[in-house]
Design a protein around this nucleic acid. Structure first.
Lengths: 241, 241
DNA sequence: TACAATTTGTGCGTATGTATA
DNA sequence: ATATACATACGCACAAATTGT
C-alpha cells in the first residue's frame, strides 16, 4: 500500500559483482584473462565463498565471464562460437545456419550524420568511421551492412587493418579494447534501394528486412551502430522467447 | 582430447527441478497456485533447503514460477504485464509501446494444411481451429494475425467464447489448461498480399514484416502456430541481445 | 599410468534480515 | 506484534574436471 521504498541497502553480493565488473571494464582483467580463484577473491574482499560465487554467477548469466570446473574463470572473448552466434541470428529456413563471408564495399573517416550522432550519443558533427560491406551466406549475397563507429574509440581503423576480419567484434576487442557486451535491435520491413538491390541480387523495391542495431559496452555506452539490410529469400531472423 | 562423455549422473537439484516442473505441467499445481514453501518441499523430498532453492531459482529463470519474499512461490500466469510483454515485441519507433486492440476477422474449424500440420506436429488432415484478426495500435491497424490451434486441445473454441479476449494466451491457460511457456519466432520481409494490404491500410506489394511463431508448452510440445503480418510504419520489432 | 594440486560444482546446515499477511 | 516465507550470508565437506608432475 505504501509507495515503493527506495532500497536502503544493496546486497553484499551485488556490491561484489559491481567491483568485479569494474575491474573487467577498466581493463585490469582484459578479455581472455583468467581471474583469481573463488577462494582468493573471497579472501581479498573478506566475504564468504558463497557470496562471491553468487556475484560471479550473475556475471556468467550476463555473458561477461565463463567458468569451467577445474580450470578457472575467464573474461569472455568474442572468438568463441557461442558468443559469435549470440550476435548473429540469421538461420536458413530449413533450420541450418552458416557463417557469413564478407566482401568490403567501402571504409572512410567522416563527420557523423544527425542520426548517427544520436544513436551513438555523440556531439553533432563528431568524427566517425563508416564501413560498408556485403556478406555472403553459402555463396549467396544475403546482407548489406552499414557500420558506424566513433572515430575516437577506434583510432586508425579507417585505414589500418588493410583487410578487415570477418568477425569485427573480435577485432574491436583485441585491437581497440572495445568489448561489445550487449546490443539492442529494431527490425522493420522496407523496400530495397537501388544499391542494396544490386548487391543482394533482388529488384529495387522488393521487400527486405532492415535490422538496426546499437551495440554497447559493459556500462551500456554505445560503441557501434549497424544497419543490416537482409534479403529473406533463404534466411530468416530467428528469436527465442 | 577425449570424446565428450555422456553425463553419468544428474545433479540432485536438477532432478528436483524436473520433479517440480512435472507437478506443474501435470496440472497438480495449476497457474496461479501457491506451491508449498521451501522448507516444506525440502523436507518432503528429503533434500537440503539450499538444493531446493537452486531448483526453484532455475524455474524462476525460465519464467515458470515467480517468487515473492514474504508471500511464497506462485506458478506464473499469463495475466501479468511482465509475461504479456514477453510475447509482444512491437515498439513504437520513439521507444514507447502500447497494447493492441483486436478486431475479429474469422474463426472456423477445419482440416490442417500440410504446413500447419508440420509446424504443430500433427497428423496430416488433423482437425484445427483457425482464427484471424486485425490488431490496432493506438487506433492504427498494424497487424494481421493468422492463428492455428490443434482442435483437440481447445474443444469448443471455434464457437464458444462468443467474443475472444485481447490476450489469447490467458484464455488458453484459464479455459483449456494450455500454458504457453516458450516460443520460437522467425522473421522475414514479404510483399503485402491484397487482403493484408486492405486491412493494414497499405498498398499491395508494399513491404511488410512477417513473424512466424510456434508457441510451446512446458515440455516443448507445439500449442499454437501464429503468423503475424505487420506494417512497420510506426512500429518495429525490438530485441535485446 | 598414476598421483597430486588446483579450481569450480554440488550438497548440507545454520543464522539472520526483510517483506507480507 | 506475530507468524510465515523468501533473501542474504556464512561455513564446511566432498565430487568432478583440469593440469602438471
Amino acid at each position: 500500500m505504501d509507495a515503493p521504498k527506495f532500497p536502503t541497502f544493496r546486497p553484499l553480493y551485488q556490491q561484489i559483482k559491481d567491483l568485479l565488473l569494474e575491474r573487467i571494464a577498466s581493463g585490469e582483467w582484459s578479455p581472455g584473462t583468467y581471474i583469481p580463484s573463488e577462494a582468493a577473491l573471497a579472501a581479498s574482499y573478506d566475504v564468504s565463498v558463497g557470496t562471491l560465487r553468487k556475484a560471479l554467477n550473475e556475471l556468467v548469466a550476463e555473458n561477461v565471464v565463463i567458468r569451467q570446473q577445474g580450470k578457472g574463470t575467464v573474461v569472455a572473448t568474442h572468438d568463441t562460437d557461442r558468443v559469435l552466434f549470440r550476435f548473429f541470428n540469421l538461420w536458413r529456413h530449413d533450420g541450418e545456419r552458416g557463417l557469413p563471408v564478407s566482401r568490403p564495399l567501402g571504409r572512410k573517416l567522416r563527420k557523423a550524420t544527425a542520426d548517427e550522432a544520436r544513436d551513438l550519443g555523440l556531439e553533432p558533427g563528431a568524427k566517425v568511421i563508416h564501413i560498408s560491406r556485403v556478406r555472403d551466406l553459402e555463396g549467396v549475397p544475403t546482407l548489406v551492412e552499414q557500420i558506424t563507429l566513433e572515430a575516437a574509440r577506434f583510432p586508425g581503423l579507417e585505414k589500418d587493418p588493410e583487410v578487415l576480419p570477418n568477425t569485427l567484434y573480435h577485432l574491436y576487442q583485441q585491437r581497440f579494447g572495445q568489448t561489445v557486451a550487449h546490443a539492442d535491435e529494431s527490425l522493420v520491413a522496407v523496400a530495397a534501394s537501388a544499391q542494396d538491390a544490386e548487391h543482394l541480387d533482388v529488384q529495387p523495391g522488393d521487400p527486405v528486412l532492415q535490422i538496426r542495431r546499437i551495440a554497447r559496452d559493459y556500462q551500456g555506452t554505445p560503441i557501434e551502430r549497424r544497419i543490416s539490410t537482409v534479403t529473406t529469400r533463404h534466411y530468416g531472423y530467428f528469436n527465442q522467447l
